[in-house]
């Protein structure tokens, strides 16, 4: 599948909470090819510090040439992206990596933690568009605080998904880990898609394995290129071989990953 380097113009930048924002970019070539679970490498500013691009899951592609990114401000690079204003540009490479594979005839559970929620909205929207008769999509969202996930939860509901929320501080949904409501519902699920912190993905993958439910995880890693050249984004595979997040993933079957080491 073709990949592009595209100078993308910022359409809007919407602050969702203190640390989360959503960047909408005019990026027609990348958006036309993108699949849920794939990612882009975004240049942060035009100077040599920070030097490297940052990887972001594609959050949304609505078919109008725009590409949406959900970003959490964690350091210098993401802060620079948060300061971008409409009309300014951001250089993107994409779409990169392998995405989710969803069977529309099976009941799905989608589990997102924090900024890992990003690719799940794209997955639901594309499933709605491509398979109008698809089976139910149950979404489980976890965040540190209610502000981080409130609006996202509403958006998932608006597009027909059932939503369960959990927050660390109990300010929205149940207090605790998102794996709790997920575990209670697991018996009704036939396939599971996860993106979030490693501990959350490990716990979800383990629950799925015990219940014999197939699970796909979207991994995150530091990486220099996103193209399979730097070989920096390594994870331990269950078979003892390494996987590269950018090339073999970022979405991989959970059983391919060595969760406990």
């Amino acid at each position: 599948m073709p990949q592009f380097q595209e100078k993308s113009i910022v359409v809007t930048s919407e602050r969702l909470s203190e640390s989360y924002f959503r960047l909408v970019l005019e990026s027609p070539r990348i958006a036309a090819q993108a699949q849920p679970g794939q990612f882009v490498m975004a240049a942060c500013g035009s100077t040599l510090d920070p030097l490297l691009r940052r990887p972001f899951s594609i959050h949304r592609c609505l078919g109008d040439g725009t590409l949406h990114l959900l970003i959490k401000i964690v350091g210098k690079g993401t802060k620079l992206l948060a300061d971008l204003e409409p009309g300014e540009s951001c250089d993107l490479l994409g779409p990169l990596g392998k995405g989710f594979t969803l069977d529309p005839d099976k009941v799905s559970g989608l589990v997102g933690g924090g900024v890992g929620i990003a690719p799940l909205l794209f997955l639901v929207e594309q499933t709605n568009a491509r398979y109008p008769q698809h089976q139910a999509l149950h979404v489980f969202l976890g965040g540190q605080t209610g502000d981080d996930i409130r609006q996202l939860g509403q958006e998932f509901e608006q597009i027909g998904a059932s939503v369960s929320l959990a927050t660390d501080d109990g300010s929205l949904g149940m207090q605790g880990l998102v794996t709790q409501p997920f575990e209670e519902a697991l018996g009704t699920l036939q396939q599971v898609f996860v993106c979030g912190p490693m501990a959350m993905m490990a716990a979800t993958a383990t629950l799925c394995q015990q219940a014999n439910v197939p699970c796909q995880v979207s991994l995150e890693s530091h990486m220099a290129c996103g193209l399979g050249a730097c070989l920096g984004c390594t994870v331990h595979g269950a078979d003892g071989n390494y996987r590269h997040v950018c090339k073999h993933g970022p979405v991989l079957p959970a059983e391919e990953i060595a969760w406990i080491r």
Binding site: H222, C230, L231, G232, T234, V235, H236, N241, Y242
Partner: peptide, 10 residues
Amino acid sequence: AGNPPPRVVE
């Protein structure tokens, strides 16, 4: 096979 992660840092 190469080294264990993390392998790169900015």
